[in-house]
Amino acid sequence: MTAALRYPRLLALQLRVSLTTAMQYRADFVVEGLMSVYWVSWNLLPLLILYADRPSVAGWDFPSALVVIGWFVVLRGILEGAINPSLVDIVERIRTGAFDYVLLKPADSQFLISTARFAPWRIIDVIGGFVILVIAFARLGRTPAVGDLAAGGLLMLAAVIVMYALWVGVVAASFWVVRLDNLTYLLGALFDTARWPVQVFRGAWRFLFTFVLPMALMTTYPAMALLGRIDVTTALACVAGALALAIGARLLWIGAVRNYTSASS
């Protein structure tokens, strides 16, 4: 096979393996589906309470805030379906020593590790999130303009890259710098904050969620783009931020593997 096609084909193969595995546990489909519905309603509860008394908070009315939550649910589906399973797997492989086999394969180790495992049933979350997005725009009584859709799509892609980079970076750091295997859980807990538009937080909180932990990049800005409320500079800054984080994560990964091969026993 040609070099250009090699990685897409490997990805397809890994996906097929995950799908085959998932098919062995078909009953999970029902359980996961019910759990998804449960958690989405759980997430909506504070929003409903808040907007029952206030028509708008920090410039966000109910349907617009619903756009943020909808995209948040999609993103979390991607996180738990396509990113987290593999990364939890690395920690386990390092513990058992099976990580050695990954390093000895003639393909990029970050690619192999990032695509090692998928949780296909999480597609339910992704679909559910898009349903919320549709409901939100139905309540707004309009469809997004074509330009907004394009900008939204671009920023959503940037959001997925940001999320992936953060998670890979944390996993690399966790077996290189701090030697802790539960850092991804911390990141997961922090990610829950991304379900709120960043503008509802003030002062230090907003700074923290925009620049230190780029939750705003992941949900608020893509939602604003879909709603046609973002300016070009912010949009470009988001894309630049995503690229910078991706490069940073790559460097961290290379450093971590180099350290693994010089320090582990």
Partner: peptide, 15 residues
């Protein structure tokens, strides 16, 4: 990882 109260705190104090 028990960040939930802090996030809710940030949210409701703004409100």
């Amino acid at each position: 990882t028990t960040t939930l109260p802090l996030v809710m705190l940030g949210l409701w104090t703004s409100v």
